[in-house]
């Protein structure tokens, strides 16, 4: 069904449009003036001003792998983050820990762990899904590089960003 919306009837002043134009000009001039005299609050001037010290704890920056206080890379290459990752930024090649290793009990570790930071959308699903508390979104946000390859964070880089995480569950102990 067609509905005809009637145009509003305008009186002669409105039809002249000039008062409306004048009030519009007054509004824009007011904004111009306020900005000129520094009365308008403007956005943060990023490279000079940074918010780093104010970043909240829940800030979602670059995902990174962490070690626990025992020095173990917490990731066991379960690949759940690879599975959940919406943009498929994560690629893991699992490996087996040799029996002679200090952490042989864990059996599995990520031989390669790549996060393509061009693809990453900082959603934090990897952190949420991780059953081992091994991947966390840290506060690094200025991820840059000159090539596509530069933008892929390999395991070493991820561990470097991640550092040591205290206060996580140490479940690969004897009790298990």
């Amino acid at each position: 069904m067609t509905i005809t919306v009637p145009r509003p009837k305008l009186n002669w002043r409105e039809r002249l449009y000039l008062p409306a134009i004048a009030s519009g000009l007054a509004i824009t001039l007011k904004h111009f003036k306020n900005m000129l005299f520094g009365r308008t609050k403007v956005t943060m001037q990023y490279p000079e001003q940074k918010w780093d010290s104010h970043l909240p704890d829940y800030y979602r920056g670059a995902p990174a792998l962490v070690r626990d206080s025992g020095g173990r890379v917490r990731c066991v290459a379960c690949q759940l983050c690879e599975f959940i990752c919406p943009p498929r930024a994560i690629k893991i090649i699992p490996g087996e820990i040799p029996p002679s290793d200090r952490f042989a009990k864990v059996e599995k570790f990520p031989q390669e762990f790549d996060i393509d930071m061009i693809r990453c959308i900082y959603c934090g699903m990897c952190e949420e899904v991780c059953p081992e508390q091994a991947i966390f979104l840290r506060k690094d946000y200025a991820i840059t590089g000159f090539t596509r390859a530069d933008m892929v964070h390999h395991k070493e880089k991820l561990l470097e960003i991640g550092g040591v995480m205290h206060g996580v569950v140490l479940k690969w102990n004897e009790k298990k």
């Binding site: 904004h31 111009f32 306020n34 900005m35 308008t40 403007v42």
Partner: peptide, 10 residues
């Protein structure tokens, strides 16, 4: 600059 000021930008 004028357009920015009118629109509350820098």
């Amino acid at each position: 600059r004028v357009s920015a000021f009118i629109q509350d930008r820098v």
